[in-house]
Design a protein around this nucleic acid. Sequence first.
DNA 1: TAACACAGCATTGTCGACAATAACTGGCTT
DNA 2: AAGCCAGTTATTGTCGACAATGCTGTGTTA
Lengths: 225, 225
Amino acid sequence: MNAPSYTTEHAVTAADKTFFQLRKDIVEGVIRAGIKLSETDLSTKYGVSRAVIREAISRLETCHLVERKANVGARVVRLSPEGLIELYQIRESLEGMAARLAAQNMTAAEIADLSGLLDAHFLTVKTGESYYQEAGDVDFHYRIILGSKNTHLITLLLDGIYHLVRMYRVQLGMAGPRITTAFDEHKHIVQAISNRDAELAEMLMRRHIMYSKNNIAQKLVQQDS
Amino acid sequence: MNAPSYTTEHAVTAADKTFFQLRKDIVEGVIRAGIKLSETDLSTKYGVSRAVIREAISRLETCHLVERKANVGARVVRLSPEGLIELYQIRESLEGMAARLAAQNMTAAEIADLSGLLDAHFLTVKTGESYYQEAGDVDFHYRIILGSKNTHLITLLLDGIYHLVRMYRVQLGMAGPRITTAFDEHKHIVQAISNRDAELAEMLMRRHIMYSKNNIAQKLVQQDS
DNA sequence: TAACACAGCATTGTCGACAATAACTGGCTT
DNA sequence: AAGCCAGTTATTGTCGACAATGCTGTGTTA
């Protein structure tokens, strides 16, 4: 049931575990958006010292999941239409570049593997299972980002803003008619990568993300009204 | 003489001060690339507790200036041609988007101001002063990044990778024939922004950064040989 | 001689206590 | 009654000590 963990992050220290747990709780809304994170409270609730809580909060800050002010404290970020737009502008830029680099740097084996993944997704979509969006879409994007072979890019996206993207998705309850069209877009992107057409791969990825943004933004205004 | 501080970061806490000092020392090579950062050593040298050193190192990690392994310690990043390429790929992507957004979001007053800045730069370049590259170029890029009005983008670039860019620049001693051509490129970018031509602004910025990358990469291989 | 095991050392991770800063409450003044 | 000031309280920032982990060098054994 759980979404598989792509970057197999193994928690070695207590701060790691606390960080992962806190991140999960924030992304999934267990700790609600906009709420204040009291260090002493969390310290007792998670059964660790304030030092590891501070460490965890510090890392959450680099994920842009919390905002901290000196001598005041940390708050979970608040979700807003503007924030969503900004986030997707970053995605469009960085993942576009990722697709471009993937077209240059992915091995033939990796491309074949990615293509196989899409075929598998096609079967599940065809049979009507709609879990595609959540796991499949994320998986697809992960592979291309990793395929860029650019460590900075990978870190920025996977450790940085992707959790925030997931937060928006989860807390808005994504599912809808977009899954099938998104699948076609994925197909075309893989084809461009397979042809080593970096230019086209970037363009298609950027359009794909723009469409995705429009879709989720529409959901968001619907919720407002 | 010092490069002006654009994001007027005011140090309120001791960890802030230590972080700024450490970052400066790393960027300027006082603490050399690849070296191990001993917490106890730094604690005595900077006259603060290990806790604030750990906090500072943690923040340095989010700037990608140091790398940390659990139970082992932190090392200053090592500069490499591959790292430089990766860095400039990110810059091309993000600053291209910044230029696009700046063309959409900068106010007329801000654009006029930016244009005036370029004119001032032109005078100094004309009179032969070559401090343009260091301060002027950075100033130009800062304004456009801020002009994007995208907080995520601004944070990623200014707090994140720009210090690493500066580290490459400083430790390779940038100065050369490129300053004049770079000025022309800046001019064209401002013109595109002034015309609200987002598409063109992005393209020109991307090319500008590609040229800049080639320039600095060339310097780097020269140093190797 | 080479390889493995163990012990000692150095370094990082974690903790609880203290100091400093900000928010809150109550009373006073105008 | 409204606004400001001071005392109080709660929260964050900083510190030194202890625990746990990784590294090193030595000694033993095949």
